[in-house]
């Protein structure tokens, strides 16, 4: 897997583990990702889920042996619970990756995997890498 970008590294986002070939990212709580006092910032949660979505898509394309350039088209984020001061995880799943466009879902959770704090759906334009 490609190294995480400077933004992810600066926030402390890291590859936590692989789950059936899908990368799970995680980040420890810090003031850098705090929104209102005691809670995670929605933008930081979105950033983490986007990283997880892209990581899942890269993993899928790598499995297929396809070298593609990725360009995000849009993302829809749903916030369902406030994120609190603890370790946060995100994982993406590729719903559909064709030759030109990919649809990737991502989920974000904390201590209870069955109670996600946010969901994201991301659309990415694919083009053959030079």
């Amino acid at each position: 897997m490609n190294a995480l970008p400077p933004y992810a590294q600066a926030l402390g986002i890291e590859l936590d583990h692989d789950e059936d070939g899908l990368p799970v990212l995680s980040v420890d709580f810090s003031e850098r990702i705090q929104g209102r006092p005691g809670f995670l910032h929605g933008g930081a949660i979105s950033g983490l889920m986007e990283m997880a979505a892209i990581a899942a898509l890269r993993a899928e394309l790598e499995r297929r042996g396809e070298a593609m350039k990725l360009k995000p088209v849009n993302v829809q984020v749903e916030f369902m619970r406030g994120g609190t001061e603890q370790r946060t995880y995100a994982m993406g799943t590729v719903t559909r990756a064709g030759r030109r466009v990919a649809l990737v879902n991502a989920e974000c959770w904390q201590d209870d995997r069955s109670k996600p704090i946010a969901l994201a759906q991301m659309k990415v334009l694919l083009s053959p890498a030079e």
């Binding site: 933004y7 929605g42 950033g47």
Partner: peptide
């Protein structure tokens, strides 16, 4: 700034900071 970059090779900002900017 460098720390907010999403693609190290190009220097393009990550989308996360833009979402946070718009959220705020």
């Amino acid at each position: 700034r460098e720390e907010l970059v999403g693609v190290a090779e190009t220097g393009v900002l990550a989308s996360g900071p833009i979402i946070s900017l718009m959220d705020n």
